[in-house]
Design a protein around this nucleic acid. Structure first.
Lengths: 108, 108
DNA sequence: ATTTTGCGAAACCAATTAGTTGCATATATT
DNA sequence: AATATATGCAACTAATTGGTTTCGCAAAAT
């Protein structure tokens, strides 16, 4: 039961579910119509997403509407930040190289 | 063999490997010393990371140095972008609410 | 030349996973 | 009240996963 966000988004069906409920809250049945699986399979994915708090539910009569817990998505963003720093640094280094070349040409 | 970036970063050991080789290129043996597993297990992780192009190798004699392919990390960032838009919108909406409250108090 | 070291690959194993089918339960509809 | 609908949950299955052990090969050290 290693239920973290990274494991949750590893599955393509779950990423598709996330993409759908990011736009609007949806019921398991409505979600299942979009995929080539049974409602139960979707339900299982929703349970996993709920367990790692990527998704919240709201009961309305006998229907349960699932929607994205956008705050939790920031956790991935936070993890990515350290690497974003790297590629930004590399970019600025490249930028410096380009500037140097420019200056050399200028000096000619 | 569903080898995509999301599946690759799902495993905590692989995320740790990524974190290490982001700083400097390392050999499988050097990497394995940091974990509680065998070199072979690390090697398997490296193979998976290589297959999805998150990692590149450079042979030096009998040693193979692995380093992070930072460009591939941007793929995750790109995926996250659509959700970043959502939380930024929500934030600006909250911002508007706060401004409205402020104006109301001002008018008192 | 022989031994040691660094490595990937294959065979195997236990645990986990994504999926199915078959329930039970609660809310709507008739 | 009887039936239909929306859902979660449990049992089961096939495939995948992360790990180990064993092997073979090439480069380095002795």
């Amino acid at each position: 039961m290693r239920r973290d966000v990274f494991q949750a988004i590893a599955d393509p069906t779950r990423r598709a579910i996330i993409a759908l409920i990011a736009l609007q809250a949806m019921t398991p049945n409505a979600l299942a119509e979009n995929f080539n699986t049974t409602r139960q399979a979707v339900s299982k994915h929703l349970r996993i997403l709920t367990e790692c708090e990527l998704v919240k539910q709201e009961q309305q009569g006998r229907e349960i509407y699932y929607s994205l817990e956008i705050e939790k998505m920031k956790e991935i963003d936070k993890w990515l930040e350290q690497y974003r720093k790297i590629w930004e640094t590399r970019f600025s280094q490249l930028d410096n190289v380009l500037k140097t070349i420019k200056n050399k040409n200028h000096g000619k």
